[in-house]
């Protein structure tokens, strides 16, 4: 677990962070450890406390108890020193609809006392260029599509060189091209050494761009570590495609595996799946045993567990997500 790293190497660190609203506990004693230079995926179903955590991290809301350190300094005590080094997209973009994209960014930049007014115009143009919005810079934000607003929100986070970027659902409302662009943007920022903290419920997203991840469920942190670590916790499966499902099942059982009930494919055959514990049986010996028993093997694969399996295992299935 990355929590073992020395504190100085953590971009974000929370200790027993708790936030209550009346009787409702939105965030319940979480210990986050976001290493410097990582792309950190902050996962959790809607309403699991991700955005509240981000608000407390950025000093917008006060923690009920617990501590937050961002870039090595206590929040919210060192808010003035920390926030200029942090770019943020918080719970979706928000702008003045009656101003143009450029005017909006200039206004937010003016709010930051550390931002030099001499370089403002150049920095705003650069940020707009980076998210591909230069062509719509002069348009009123009222006329922007959801995806354009989202990009403008990301541009706002990039107005200054940042050490840490906090992006809450950055690909919300973006089309596939936009999503790809955000992915490559995050990668290029990470390559420059920026720590990126991405909250999302899109697991494929996180799996593709993140080095580390944490999973929230009902206000609690239920898992944290590198993405590989998280994935490894889940079991791999063997998948046998065959018309002889009963024989295949028997063979797998003899080898000490626990096959799941088969389900039929479109091509007339069926698939038998069985969880494969680490290194108990070599996959090739499974195939050999199947063939020796006369099972017609049409396909065979070992699937490592995806982050999605892990996520669902941790947070619940379908609409039964723990609230």
């Amino acid at each position: 677990m990355s929590g073992a790293l020395p504190a100085t190497e953590l971009a974000i660190e929370t200790t027993g962070l708790t936030k209550r609203f009346g009787h409702q506990t939105a965030v319940d004693g979480i210990d986050l450890a976001v290493p410097h230079g990582s792309v950190f995926g902050f996962l959790g179903p809607n309403g699991s406390g991700k955005t509240t955590t981000i608000r407390v991290m950025l000093g917008l809301a006060a923690a009920t108890s617990g501590y937050v350190r961002v870039l090595g300094q206590d929040m919210p005590a060192s808010l003035r020193d920390v926030l200029p080094r942090v770019g943020a997209l918080i719970e979706g973009p928000a702008f003045y609809p009656f101003l143009s994209g450029t005017a909006n960014l200039q206004r937010f930049d003016t709010a930051d006392r550390h931002a030099s007014s001499a370089t403002r115009r150049a920095r705003v143009n650069q940020a707009l260029d980076r998210v591909g919005l230069s062509h719509a810079a002069g348009k009123k934000v009222r006329a922007y599509s959801l995806g354009m607003k989202q990009r403008l929100g990301i541009a706002n986070a990039l107005l200054m060189p940042r050490e840490l970027l906090v992006l809450d659902e950055p690909t919300n409302g973006l089309d596939p091209q936009g999503t790809r662009e955000v992915r490559s943007l995050v990668r290029s920022l990470a390559a420059e050494g920026t720590t990126v903290f991405v909250s999302s419920h899109l697991l494929a997203e996180v799996e593709q761009i993140c080095t580390h991840a944490a999973v929230m469920s009902a206000g609690k942190l239920v898992a944290q570590g590198t993405v590989d670590e998280l994935r490894r916790v889940g079991l791999a499966h063997v998948k046998v495609q065959t018309p002889d499902t009963e024989d295949a099942g028997r063979v797998l059982q003899r080898l000490g595996l626990a096959p799941e009930p088969p389900h039929s494919n479109n091509d007339g055959g069926s698939t038998v799946r069985a969880p494969l514990a680490d290194h108990t049986v070599a996959p090739e010996s499974i195939v050999a045993a199947l063939v020796a028993e006369g099972v017609r093997v049409r396909g065979f694969a070992v699937e490592s567990s995806s982050l999605e399996d892990r996520f669902v295992a941790l947070t619940g299935e379908g609409f039964d997500v723990v609230q």
Binding site: A94, Y96, A111, N156
Partner: peptide, 18 residues
């Protein structure tokens, strides 16, 4: 109401200054 308050404070504008 616009939602811009959170971005002004995260800029950071400073609450007293705002």
């Amino acid at each position: 109401g616009h939602g811009t308050l959170r971005y002004l404070l995260a800029a950071p504008a400073g609450r007293v200054r705002l």
